[in-house]
Design a protein around this nucleic acid. Sequence first.
DNA 1: GACGGATTCCGCA
DNA 2: TGCGGAATCCGTC
Length: 294
Amino acid sequence: MNALSPVPETATDITPSGEDYAIVKQVIELITIDYREQPSLDAIAAELGQSPTQLQKVFTRWAGLSPKAFLQAVTLDHAKRLLHQEELPLLETSLEVGLSGPSRLHDLFVTHEAMSPGEWKAKGGGLTMRYGFHPSPFGLALVMVTDRGLAGLAFADDEGGRDAYFHDMARRWPNAHYVQDSDATAPYISRVFDARRWACEEPLRVVLIGSDFQIRVWQSLLKIPFGKAVTYSDVARDIGQPTASRAVGAAIGRNPISFVVPCHRALGKSGALTGYHWGLTRKRAILGWEAGKG
DNA sequence: GACGGATTCCGCA
DNA sequence: TGCGGAATCCGTC
C-alpha cells in the first residue's frame, strides 16, 4: 500500500520494516531447533544463503541487538530470569499511573475500557469494526478498530492467507459490521509499533470485548511491565482465582489484541513458552525484540 | 453436564 | 535436565 514512501533505513530506526521479519523469523526457527547449540552467525547465514554481514545488519536493525545477544535473550535461562526478577509485579503496578516506574517509560501507554456483559452477549451486534492489513515488525498485521478504540490486532504469516486471518478475528464478534478501511487503521500501527511514540501524552485507547472472565485476565496482562514476564498461575492468583491457571491459559489464548495486551509475557512455570495463538516463533520474536528495547 | 485446555506436578531416565 | 503421563480445575457451549 505504501510502496511510494520509502522508509529510511538507518541503524537507529526503531520502526523496522516488515520485510526484516521474514529473515528474523527464519533465524529464530533455526536456533530453536537446538538453542543450546547457539550456532554462529556464519553458520546461520550459510544456512539461509545470506552473507553474514547482511544478516548482521538486518538483525541489528530489527532487534536492536546483535544476533548473539538476541540468541541469549530467547533461551530458557533468560526466560526464567524474567520470571523471577521481580516477586509480584502484578500487585503494585497501576495502569492508570502508567509512567510512574522507569520500566514503563519505554512501554506502550494504554488506557482500556471493557464492553459491558450485554454488549458481549450481542456478539458485536450494533458495532462497526473497521479493519486493515499493515506491515509490522512481526509480519503482516491485521488491525481492527471501533469508535471506542483498538479492538483487535492479529498477525498473519503469509500475504495469501489474509482471508483466514480475517475470519479468525471476525468470528469472535460475528454480528459486527465489518468495513475495510486501511486509512482508519493505519495510525494505530505506527502508534503501537513505533517505540518513539509509546510514551506520548495521549494514551492508546483500547476496548476489550470478551466474557467477564476473559476481560479480568486481559486486564491482568496489561499490568505486566515491559521486559518482565509472569506465569499462568501468577495471573490466576492476580485475578483472585489461584487454582484457575489452566482456564487462564485458555483465556489468554483468546486475547484479541495481541502485542498490546501482552499475552506473549505469559510463560509456563518452568519458563517455557508453552503456546501462542500466532505461533511460538512469533512469541520468541516479540520477547527477543522487547529485550532489545529494554 | 460434558469437554478439553497457551497448566502443573511427579516420577523416571 | 528433559520428557511423558495423570491429576485437577475451570470457563464455555
